[in-house]
Structures are given as C-alpha cells and as structure tokens.
Simulated assay, not measured.
Amino acid sequence: MKSNFYYTFPAIKGKQANRDFFVIMCPLSILSKLFLFNEDDLPPEHRAQRILNKARIPEMASYILNNPNDYVFSSVTASIDGDFDFTAINKDFDDKIGVLKVSMDSRLLINDGQHRRAAIEEALKASPELGDETISVVLFIDEGLKRSQQIFADLNKHAVNVSKSIGILYDSRDPIAMLTKGLLEGNKYLENYTDKENPSLSKFSPKLFTLSSINETNKKLSNKLNVSDSKTADFVNEFWDVLINNMREWQFVFNKELSPHNFRSDYISSNGVVLEALGLVGNYLYKNNPETWKDILSKIKYIDWHRSNLEDWQDRVIGPTGRIVKSATYVRLTCNLIKMKLNIPLTKDELKLEQDCKKED
C-alpha cells in the first residue's frame, strides 16, 4: 500500500460477478467521518446516487432515539476508492475471514444508505452513547462513477416497497396499528373479510376491506383522542359495530347472499374513500354528540350506497371517468354528504369546500 496510514477492519471477503467485496462492522461514532456523501451540488448524471432528502432525517433519527433497545438498520453499501489490502487470518482454515486495511488517502463513498448515515449522525448528537454500537457495511471496489451509478441502480431496481397493510400487520409500535389489529381480533366479520396483505382488492377477491383502509379510517376516527385510553379503543370497536349492524349491504355478504365481487360491483360502502369519510363523521359525532352518536350514525342504513347513485356520489366518491377516486378532497366531500344525509351541520371549512367545488363546476 502506498500510504503509511490506514484504517483496519475485521472483515469477511465475498465474491459477486467475479468481483471481490467485503463486509465490515463500523462503529456508529465514526460512520459519518469515514463514509462520505458530499454530492448535493452535482447534477444527477454526475452523482453516484439520488440527492439526500433532508426531510426524512428527523423521523429516522427519532426512530433510533425512541427505540434504543430494538431499532434495526440494514447494511450500508459503499465503495472503496483508493488503496486497500485484505489479509486472511488463517489461509489454511478460511481465507475469507481476515483483516481489511484501507489507506487513509482513500475515499469511502456511500452507494446506498446515505439517509441511514445522516440519521445516525443526527441521533448521536442527542445520544452519544450510541456511538459504540455498530452497523454492517458492504464494501465494493470502486471502478469509477459509471460503476458506482450502476451499483445504486442495481440495488434499488428490484426493491419493492412493503404494502401498507403488511406494514400495519407487523408494526408493534404504532398505537393506531395496534388498535386496528385489536379491532380485527375481536370482530369476526372484520377478521374474515379483511385482506391483511394487499394494498388493494383484486377483482375476484373474497374480501370487502383492506387492512390499510381500516387503519386509515381509525386514524381519522381517533383524531385528537387519546389512543392509549381504553375509552378510545371502546369507541373504535363500537363505531365498527354500528357500521356492521346498519350497513345492510354488508350483511348480504356476511350472510352469503351476495359475493364480495358482486357487492363491490354494485355498492361503494366498503371502499376506502367511504370508510375514511365515515371515520371523520364518527370522530365529529363522538366529540359533539357523545350521548347520541350511535343513534345518529345508525341512520346510515337509509343512505343509498349503490354505485349507480351518481346523483349523490359523482365527484365525491366516483370521478369523471366513472372510477372510484381516492383523494383527500374526495374523502372530505364524501364526509360532507354523509353529514348532510344524517342532518349533521357542516363546519365553516366544510361549507367553504362545498362552495368552492360548486364554483369549479
């Protein structure tokens, strides 16, 4: 090696596509010092990866700080741009375990994991004791910008975001997710007719709801309520009981009189737009009519939920093309109509939204 000064890491050597690479454990305290990401001002074609999205950093840092005993980060991927040397500890026993020496003149450039690096750096400011913990780093040999860009593209090309439903199902920290899972466990209809994995229902799905749409409804239902309070959980369970008992079309499916596929073709009342709008209505009633909210909400049985009822649902649930549209504005407009159907007064903001939409028409 040309340099007299070098970093030394215990390492494991591997091989992919006939190229050597190494896996090391890096203390969090030196991660940001060793591994560089300083390409913010370069145009995309001259960068090895996407620019840092600084808005993501506080949330990721908070995740570490709020879960010091069980946070999890996957490996950072980087490239060695400079001199290095790998020496096996025992060539006769295993020539893949050894010591990696990297010249201090080298640059260690991050190919994938710049947000983890920045979040760790931010978390260390608040909790320096995390510095002794480690993160695994996969090191490839730098072969220039083109190869570094290809590494980034290859690492992200086949990445598939976890569906919202799976994220909720596996989340044991988010109180709303916990509330939603508890709801399903205690309600046989929701348990049997909720798809817990897919983000949307296929044409012939035997389900009525997705876990993500129920969870989004519960977010709106419990807005500005103490989710940790058992009273809120009771309210959420009672809200869904009212829906199940008064959505007569749902009963057709529960009683096997109508298939979920045919139900979704004819009715809109299990769609996420409607459920979230009902969540807004339920939240309003619980706060403003605590004694009578169930009686008022039960009158949804008199609403015409047919998909063909365009007089009510056009430009609220159903868009100009005839397809159901999921948007925050449509949820609010659907909430407005449900409130009007139930003789619930609209707020100033809701009245303004109605007026603004009529002007656009």
Rank of each mutant, 00 (worst) to 15 (best):
A328N: 09
I303P: 07
E122R: 14
S308K: 15
E238V: 13
P260M: 00
N262E: 11
G182R: 08
S212V: 12
L225T: 08
L52W: 01
G282I: 12
N237W: 00
E249K: 13
N156P: 05
T180Q: 04
D81G: 06
R50H: 06
W305G: 07
R332T: 01
I141Y: 09
L278P: 07
Y193Q: 04
I12D: 00
I135T: 04
N336I: 10
T8Q: 12
L169M: 08
E276K: 15
F37W: 14
N187H: 04
A11T: 00
K256S: 06
R307Q: 12
A123N: 12
D92T: 09
K256L: 03
I296W: 09
P260N: 00
S213D: 14
L184W: 05
S75H: 05
L225D: 03
K341L: 01
I89L: 09
D349K: 13
S79E: 12
S265Q: 15
A233P: 00
V102F: 04
I244L: 12
L109C: 11
S265D: 15
D40N: 12
K54N: 07
N161M: 05
G319E: 04
N18G: 00
K91W: 00
E311G: 15
V160M: 09
E350Y: 08
C357Y: 06
N4L: 10
F152E: 05
F73T: 01
S136F: 01
D361M: 05
N343H: 13
G167R: 07
E238S: 13
T292E: 15
P44K: 03
Y63G: 12
R117N: 13
E291C: 05
V138E: 11
N66L: 09
M25C: 01
I24P: 05
D40S: 13
N111M: 14
S172D: 07
K358M: 12
E39R: 09
T232R: 02
V281S: 09
E276D: 09
E39P: 02
S265A: 13
I89M: 03
K352A: 12
L342F: 11
D112C: 05
N309F: 11
G98W: 01
R264G: 04
M1Q: 06
K256P: 00
K54W: 01
S75L: 09
S79P: 07
K301A: 11
I338K: 07
Q49N: 06
K101N: 15
E350N: 06
S222L: 08
S222P: 08
I135N: 03
L109M: 12
N161V: 04
L109P: 10
Q251D: 08
P199Y: 02
I64C: 03
G131V: 06
G14C: 01
